[in-house]
Nucleic acid binder design. Structure first.
Length: 877
RNA sequence: GCCUGGGUGGUGGAAUGGUAUACACGCACGCCUUAAGAGCGUGUGGCGAAAGUCAUGCGGGUUCGAGUCCCGCCCUAGGCACCA
């Protein structure tokens, strides 16, 4: 090897990278033919929302990691489809437009240009013929189509709902923008406002969304997050008679087995029964009590969400003056009103079992309500002396052992145990006890089995400007006549499909109004229309849809644009003679979807665990069920992403990168200075792809040094026969780097490439085969430089990205010798060299080690030898 | 409180139960330079002159052998949280 660098060509990444990026784009190197390619591989990465000042290194990190995977698959013979687009509709982008004082549409144009320029400069192998932007009318036409399908399937409906209202921003906020009851932007306490809203019935799919999780290869933490979000609780719904009122009070409980321990009931301040009481329907309730209730309800209403849900808040409540009857033992128990019971879950009413529920227990203690124990802990006979409450941790509540029937236990017992004090149920044990009790309650017509879910319907309306107008039309006349597209929603019609898209008008007063209405509501030229049914004057919906709807189906659209946009052409090339969609019925070409979906791998951030990643599964299931359309157009799969990889986050100086902290790093300056290859290599090197890493300027210079060294080496290399050492090293490197890239362990892959360089660069010859293999291993990380070297060295025809991955060179391993350390009783006592063909032969290895071992035995005897082939031999004496 | 991850040099981080600290940063010394920079080379966990010996958050255990497996703690990051 020539170490004199003065004669080598200087490494100029700017020139090399510009050249190759143009060539890839001109040659359509990364544009697969969607109809004909034999081994399709849809390598999908979460598309960015271009709301900030530009692509930052956190984005680039994610995209580069995904691109390394794509290039690896391409070199393994797959036809990789790696598309990119912009999630530019929605509140993030609109907020950014507000901040910089530009019209969102104008800002979108600027952002789009900048983002695509930045994305291209990273050298990722994107298919630039199939980009999409969610604000493109040709895209949101189909987002609106999707809304209409939801409506026609009965999955979209309207109801009055409380929305988050930020008094400082004068706008509604999405749930995800509310953190601890405060606006994420300015920290103002969020209020609730009642508004008529559109919802999607995602709750209809609760069980399927839950069941699907078992079938997909996703990080466990994401699955758990979705499971908890859906939050299925099995239990029972029970009826209690209310005294002196001719009605029943229904409750939901997960612990019907504790029914004999129900000593009072609690209803939420919003419960309908409260209004009945306040209306004075029951003459037996004293004025004083009604006054108390009135006051309490007003207080509860005025509390912020934050105050009401604070965990360590002391419980409060008032007596309702009503009594209920416990259906199993006929006990008269008081009904209380307290805000620790939420109207939004279950029935808004509970049976309180203070002996076995921490919240009920705290409430009972405070208001001196009776506590009856009905569950005896397993092994409950074991006596346990009471300890002072102050020294008890909460976790002790679960472990508490106590004798039953104690008048006032210190803590509720919430673990599993045996039923006591419950007549015929006595002795039943968890978990069978719950099923048996439910069976008993059914037979006695007291209750029935029921499950409740944490998941709520998806609030889809946004009173904003920058989104797809909800394509619905309201006709007052039809409503009065009780007519409508759907029987349950008189007056409402979906916009006729041939009139899509309902264009978002270009208006100057686009800023949020603060009235609870979208800015579109002040534009009669937008909302005035005619009723699709009776042709009288009608009004368009003026809200837009949630940005998560835009991103819930985009992966399908990637496969339906570019050369597939003119779909009639593709119908002719479909050799199966199957009649294909002409693009007017569904937003995709079923034949192409069949080939490329479900997506081979989805790569993105785990922060989308329960929003995007849940919605996208939901929408796929809806399109799988596809009602009101020919069934051959429905999706064949239910789970769009059978495999999802969650990458880590890039932090800067130990802190999460964010605009508010002012530590956002934009890649442009680094690409200009060092080149994209250096930055890619650096980003992939700083930690496991699943973990992320800490971005530091000092580290990138080291990577740059390495890139330059490799460049110089290849520019001065003289090919010759490999040394034994080189053969052994390249074989090992190929093997390990392949495994590492396959398992997203990019940082160790790069470390091994560096290690190989260190071994090989100094005065050692290597063969052309070794050089090619090394370059190929390098290519996914530093695509431009390796292409350039590949070309300069005339190593083969065409782009390196279509050449195959290096074959394992097992044959070399056989000629090698391996050093095996010798241990005696686990302590290192020397080493021997073993030839590869003897590696698995323990007897031979023992024989070889004999001399060294016997010299150190000091009269002791070898009891046994433990041999780990090629790794270690340990003699036990 | 509950659920996930994670605690290894000065730093980022490697280690299918098998030579702990790969690779890189930083630092030190040297070469080359008038000099600086770049580049190249050598060294770099602690203690010890050395043989050695002690080190992977803390305390136990299993094993010929534990960063890795088991039990009990501590700390830390993220997610969820009055969901009956």
């Amino acid at each position: 090897m020539n170490k004199d660098a003065s004669s080598t060509k200087e490494y100029k990444p700017q020139e090399i990278e510009a050249f190759w990026q143009k060539k890839w784009s001109d040659d359509k190197t990364f544009t697969p033919s969607l109809w004909t390619d034999p081994k399709p591989y849809f390598n999908l990465m979460m598309f960015p929302y271009p709301s900030a000042e530009g692509l930052h290194v956190g984005n680039m990190y994610a995209f580069t990691g995904a691109d390394v995977h794509g290039r690896f698959k391409r070199m393994n013979g797959y036809q990789v489809f790696e598309p990119i687009g912009l999630d530019g509709f929605g509140i993030h982008s609109e907020n950014y437009a507000l901040k910089v004082g530009r019209h969102p549409a104008e800002q979108a144009k600027i952002s789009q240009k900048n983002f695509y320029r930045q994305l291209a400069s990273t050298g990722n192998g994107y298919d630039w013929t199939r980009t999409l932007e969610t604000y493109d009318p040709d895209y949101y036409r189909w987002t609106q189509w999707l809304f209409i399908q939801m409506f026609k399937s009965g999955l979209a409906y309207r109801k009055k709902a409380k929305v988050n209202w930020c008094p400082s921003d004068k706008t509604v906020l999405a749930d995800e923008q509310v953190i601890d009851g405060k606006c994420e932007r300015d920290g103002a306490v969020v209020e609730k406002r009642d508004l008529e809203q559109w919802f999607f019935k995602i709750t209809d799919y609760s069980d399927r969304l839950l069941a699907g999780l078992d079938k997909i290869d996703w990080p466990e933490k994401v699955k758990i997050a979705q499971k908890l979000w859906i939050g299925k609780s099995k239990g029972a719904r029970l009826k209690f008679k209310v005294d002196s009122q001719n009605r029943e009070l229904e409750v939901f409980t997960t612990r019907p087995d504790t029914l004999y321990g129900a000593t009072f009931m609690v209803i939420s301040p919003e419960h309908p029964l409260v209004e009945e009481i306040l209306s004075g329907a029951d003459a037996n309730i004293s004025k004083r009590i009604i006054e108390n209730i009135k006051q309490y309800v007003v207080e509860a209403k005025n509390k912020t969400e934050q105050d009401r849900t604070a965990t360590d808040k002391e419980k409060t409540g008032v007596e309702s003056g009503l009594l209920a009857t416990n259906p199993v033992n006929g006990a008269k128990i008081p009904i209380w009103i307290a805000d620790y019971v939420l109207m939004g879950y279950g029935t808004g009413a509970i049976m309180a079992v203070p002996a076995h529920d921490e919240r009920d227990f705290a409430f009972a203690k405070k208001y001196n309500l009776p506590i009856t124990e009905v569950i005896e802990p397993k092994g409950g006979s074991v006596a346990h002396h009471p300890r002072p409450t102050s020294s008890l941790k909460d976790s002790d509540a679960v472990a508490r052992r106590g004798s039953p029937n104690r008048a006032t236990p210190n803590l509720p017992f919430v673990g599993e145990g045996r039923i006591i004090n419950s007549e015929s149920w006595n002795g039943w044990e968890m978990p069978e006890s719950i099923d048996k009790v439910i069976e008993w309650l059914k037979e006695n017509k007291i209750g029935k089995e029921e499950s409740n879910y944490h998941l709520r319907d998806w609030l889809i309306s946004r009173q904003r400007y920058w989104g797809p107008p909800i394509p619905m039309i309201y006709c007052k006349k039809c409503e009065e006549e009780g007519k409508g597209e759907r029987e349950d929603m008189p007056g409402w019609y979906s916009a006729p499909l041939d009139q899509l898209p309902v264009l978002l008008p270009d208006v100057t007063d686009w800023k949020p109004m603060g009235s609870g209405e979208s800015p579109l509501a002040s534009h009669p030229e937008f909302y005035n229309t005619t009723c699709p049914s009776c042709s009288s004057v009608a009004r368009r919906e003026t809200d837009v849809s949630d940005t998560f709807l835009d991103s819930a189906w985009y992966y399908l659209r990637y496969l339906s644009i570019g050369d597939t946009k003119n779909m009639s052409k593709d119908i002719k090339t479909d050799k199966n003679g199957q009649e294909e969609n002409d693009g007017s019925k569904v937003p995709y070409v079923p034949g192409i979807i069949k080939r490329w979906c479900p997506v081979a791998i989805y790569i993105g951030g785990a922060e989308h665990s329960v929003l995007h990643l849940l919605y996208v599964r939901f929408i796929a299931m809806v399109l799988h069920d596809l009602k009101n359309q020919p069934q051959n157009l429905a999706l064949e799969f239910e789970e769009p992403f059978p495999r999802f990889f969650a990458h880590g986050l890039i932090v800067k100086d130990g802190a999460k990168m964010s605009k508010s902290k002012g530590n956002v790093v934009v890649p442009d300056a680094y690409i200009n200075k060092f080149g994209a290859d250096t930055l890619r290599l650096y980003l992939m090197f700083i930690g496991q792809f699943k973990d992320g890493g800490d971005f530091r300027d000092s580290g990138i210079e080291g990577t740059n040094r390495f890139v330059k060294r490799v460049w110089n080496l290849f520019n001065t290399v003289e090919f010759g026969p490999d040394s034994e050492e080189t053969l052994r090293m390249i074989n090992k490197t190929i093997k390990e780097v392949t495994n590492d890239i396959e398992s997203f362990s990019y940082n160790t892959a790069i470390a091994k490439l560096m290690e190989f360089y260190n071994h090989i660069s100094d005065d050692k010859k290597w063969s052309k085969e070794t050089a090619t293999s090394y370059l190929k291993l390098f290519a996914p990380f530093a695509p431009h430089m390796t292409e350039e070297l590949w070309k300069n060295m005339e190593l083969g025809e065409g782009s390196i990205h279509f050449s195959s991955w290096p074959e394992h060179q097992e044959k070399y391993l056989e000629t090698n010798e391996v050093i095996v350390p010798i241990q005696i009783n686990g302590k290192r006592r020397g080493e021997i060299t073993v030839s590869s063909k003897d590696i698995k032969d323990q007897a031979k290895v023992e024989e070889k080690a004999k001399e060294i071992v016997s010299a150190q035995l000091e009269g002791k005897e070898v009891k046994k030898a433990i041999y780990v082939p090629g790794k270690i031999i340990n003699f036990v004496v």
